[in-house]
Write a protein that binds this DNA or RNA. Structure first.
Lengths: 217, 217
DNA sequence: TAGATTGTTAATCGATTAACAATC
DNA sequence: TAGATTGTTAATCGATTAACAATC
């Protein structure tokens, strides 16, 4: 048990475990084993056990983990509960969708406002959150000690916006624009790059198609 | 050179290379080296060279690759050009945002329509694409030979929708719902799970904060 | 007890990186 | 030519998986 740093792979699996634990009928499954979690999620059981060992106070042989405690341990580790505040830059379709998404608070993210340069959209509200002029970004970030920025502008504007965010004190950038962003090494960029996903999906389809054709001919 | 199967990591880096190549001023950079690409994208040059060796006809010592040829090779490999057709299930905010996004065609994806169960939204158009009743899904998928489905429904409905997609002949699922989807092993699920990204970003912020505090105290 | 499950140590696997010969 | 760059072979690294003793 401990709050030591955890590999990126482990960090990405933790929400998956949490998600599964929360899907269990309440109070009906007091204990849960790594073996069962692994099986349900299509993973290796030792891997699950190692991941859980990093963040929980441990399970008991034959019995497994206490479901409620494990759930709480993962949530605490992921920082759900004390949400990070974030701003969105770019209030187009995607920005609006993210502004309206009510579920972020459950994942420890509190989107406080959006920024844009388009006068026609400044002042509008989406999901109860305002679109402000980009000029107000530095002051608001500093005043509210905001450390996360979400980039939903077109690719051509993304690096400029990223620079402005860093200038405003942001330490973590969630980038939805399909570009590589250059940042200082203490700033983390997480790319939600749809082109990556599409490449993987598309290649799978092409390969499947090839197989079917070879099998047929 | 060859169309052999490529690791997932390589597949995810290819759009990054392509993106960089396209950002170069047209006709002004006839040749490009793996060394330069690696430097600009913060990667190892041997890694870039190995990735490119999988899909290109090769570069020349001292000169590098022919920019235009390399660009074309990556696009061909990723299947840009002959787009995969896809349907979106769930025409809420995120579904609408994806329907409206004009850039998918550039990435080899042609979204043909959306489906929903909500009568108030059925018949509406977003980005020139219609929202149809979910009942019409199987027939349309079969008739148009659609093999990719995009899930943008709430978590609670995602597995049901996924089953319907597979029933309709879909082979690749792009899942935006924060749930693990159970599928036959010849179907590929690519999760665009924002909880993963948020976990990585949030942990970075927590660790940075810890460092700053230790440095200060 | 018997056996399921934990947690750890060792082996395997695959991706990244280093070293280097070939070449333009 | 000299040196930058390619492509390949070998070494390293880290994550996954297997093996196994401990334990409830």
């Amino acid at each position: 048990m401990g709050m030591q740093s955890v590999s990126k792979q482990t960090l990405e699996r933790l929400p998956l475990y949490l998600n599964y634990l929360k899907s269990l009928p309440k109070d009906e499954v007091p204990n849960i084993s790594a073996t069962v979690i692994a099986e349900k999620l299509g993973l290796n059981d030792v891997q699950v056990r190692k991941d859980l060992a990093m963040i929980s106070s441990g399970g008991r042989p034959k019995i497994g983990y206490i479901t409620a405690d494990l759930t709480a341990d993962i949530e605490r580790f992921l920082g759900y509960g004390n949400a990070d505040r974030a701003v969105i830059i770019g209030a187009g379709h995607l920005g609006q969708a993210l502004l309206c998404y009510q579920g972020f608070l459950d994942y420890g993210l509190d989107v406080v406002a959006a920024f844009d340069t388009d006068k026609r959209i400044i002042g509008a509200e989406f999901g109860g959150k305002q679109v402000l002029p980009i000029e107000k970004l530095p002051e608001l970030c500093r005043r509210m000690k905001i450390r996360m920025g979400i980039i939903t502008v077109p690719a051509s504007a993304a690096q400029l916006v990223c620079d402005q965010l860093i200038e405003s004190g942001i330490m973590a950038v969630w980038n939805f624009a399909p570009v590589y962003l250059k940042v200082p090494k203490d700033v983390l960029v997480q790319n939600e790059n749809m082109a990556y996903s599409l490449a993987v999906l598309s290649k799978h389809l092409t390969q499947r198609m090839g197989e079917v054709q070879s099998a047929g001919g």
